[in-house]
Structure formats: structure tokens, C-alpha cells
Amino acid sequence: MTEAKKTADTQAVIAELEKIVEQKPNNVMARHHLGLIYRQTGRIEEAVAQLEKAIELDNQSMESMINLGAIFFDQGDTDRALELNEQALKVSPDMAEAHVNIGLIRQHRGEVDQAVESYNRALQVDPKLLTAWINLTSAYTMLEQDDKAVDAARQAVTLEPDSAMARNNLAVALYFKGDFAESQRNMEKAKELGYSVDPRFADALKQKLA
């Protein structure tokens, strides 16, 4: 499909959703999906307006809360992002995605111990949630809990051997644990899978192996 065709299709979907919203202003799903596609096409203010309206119409609309939270996180408004994910958890306490998002927000704010708690809550709900294991690895690395970081990274790689990020995280965790040879093997695998390895990390590992 050409880029022009994709753009035309996207505009057609937007036009159809806008028509539905105009005719049925209380259609929560139409507003939700319109918000998502506005976000995808860079119309952020309009995306926020639609998602906020969806939540206003249905205070159980967890997906709208999650997606609106993601927009605010991208904008650097971590307070609002955190509030929306916590709101989603009030609707569904076992929503693993919200726990991961809260962990990411906490980690971004330097509240790493709390981030670990959130990632572990997510894994209690879904032990096979790759993003939780990947984020948990980086959180443990930040806390210099190297054994736990390696264990979390191995869990991620076991779940998805071809995850470039999981491989890179494992390489970093192994580096800090002092297993430089295996770190290099995983770094090279991450590169093969398309990961842009930090050249400073590659240089530091090279020096350790010299």
C-alpha cells in the first residue's frame, strides 16, 4: 500500500468517525477511536478532547483513560498521566497495562522502588507480560540490584527470544554483573535484531573484554 493510499484511507476513517460523533454525540466508542486516530495523525489537542469526552460520558472507559494518560505522559505531565492510570485501576484493579504504565511513570520520576512494586503487581496479574519484565530489568539495573536485573532480563528473553530490547537489557544487566562474554553475545544479538546499541556501552564492554 502506498503512503498516499494509507493517508487517504486514514482520512476516510476520520471523516466517518467524525460523522458518527456529530450524529450521535454520546457514542463513547466512536469518540474513543476518533481520539486514537487523531493522536496517530498528530492532532493531539483534538485527541485529548475526544478522549476526555469519552471518559465524561462513561466513567468506566478504561481504554480511554489509558490512552489519554499516554498522551499526557508524552507531554511530560506525569501527574495527570498517573491520575488517569490510577483511575483505570479503580475500575479494574487487575488491569496489568495500567500497573505497567504507573511503573513507567514512577521510574521516569525517579521513584524506582515504587516502579518495581507496580511492575511486580502487573506480573502477578499476567506473568507473561513482556513489557513488565523489560521495564523491571531496567528498574533493577537503576537500583544496582544486578542479580534481580539479570533474572528479569532472562525472563523477558525466554518469553520473546527475538525481542531486541530484551536482548539489549540482558546485555546491560550482565555487564553490571560482570559477565562480559555473555553480555557481548546478547549485545550482538540485539544488534542483529535491529537494536541501536548505545556506542558508549559497546565501547565500555569492548574495554572489559580487551
Rank of each mutant, 00 (worst) to 15 (best):
E182F: 07
D179S: 10
G194D: 03
V197D: 05
Q145T: 03
K53I: 07
M187T: 06
R121T: 10
Q145V: 07
T141G: 09
E83A: 13
A54W: 04
V91Y: 02
L130S: 11
A49W: 01
E16C: 06
I102Q: 05
Y140L: 06
A12I: 02
A190L: 00
Q60V: 02
E117L: 13
K208L: 02
L170Q: 07
N26C: 00
E3M: 11
Q207S: 11
A96P: 00
Q114M: 06
I44T: 15
E192L: 06
E46G: 06
A54S: 12
N120M: 12
Q40H: 09
F201T: 08
R167Y: 00
A153C: 11
Q50L: 02
M165P: 03
K53A: 13
A139S: 14
K90T: 13
E3F: 04
M29L: 14
H108T: 15
Q155G: 01
M1N: 06
N135D: 04
V157P: 11
E45K: 15
V21H: 08
I37G: 00
F72C: 08
N168V: 00
K128M: 09
P127G: 08
Q40M: 12
I37P: 08
E3P: 01
V125P: 04
A70T: 12
P127L: 04
Y119V: 04
N67T: 00
S138F: 09
V48K: 15
R31I: 10
E22S: 15
A4W: 03
Q124W: 01
Y175K: 02
P161H: 08
A12Y: 01
A204G: 01
L170H: 06
H32W: 12
G178L: 07
P161V: 04
A4R: 11
N101H: 09
L36T: 11
P127H: 11
L130F: 04
A149K: 08
A8W: 09
L68K: 05
V150N: 01
F72Y: 15
V100L: 06
K24P: 02
A81R: 10
V116P: 09
G110D: 12
L129A: 01
E188P: 02
G42I: 08
T7V: 13
Q60D: 10
V21Y: 07
D94I: 08
A149T: 07
K128Q: 14
S196R: 05
N135P: 00
Y140T: 05
V13S: 11
S163P: 05
T7K: 15
Q50H: 07
L36N: 15
R109N: 14
L51W: 11
V125I: 15
H32Q: 10
A122H: 12
E63Q: 14
D58V: 07
L136T: 03
A164R: 02
H33A: 05
E63W: 10
F73N: 11
L174F: 04
V21E: 09
A8R: 12
Q11C: 04
I134M: 08
T158P: 00
V116I: 15
N169A: 10
A164C: 08
K6Q: 13
Q145K: 15
E192W: 01
D179W: 06
K191P: 00
D77L: 13
I105Q: 03
A54E: 06
N85G: 05
N26E: 14
A70S: 14
T7D: 07
A47P: 07
R80E: 13
A171H: 03
Q11V: 02
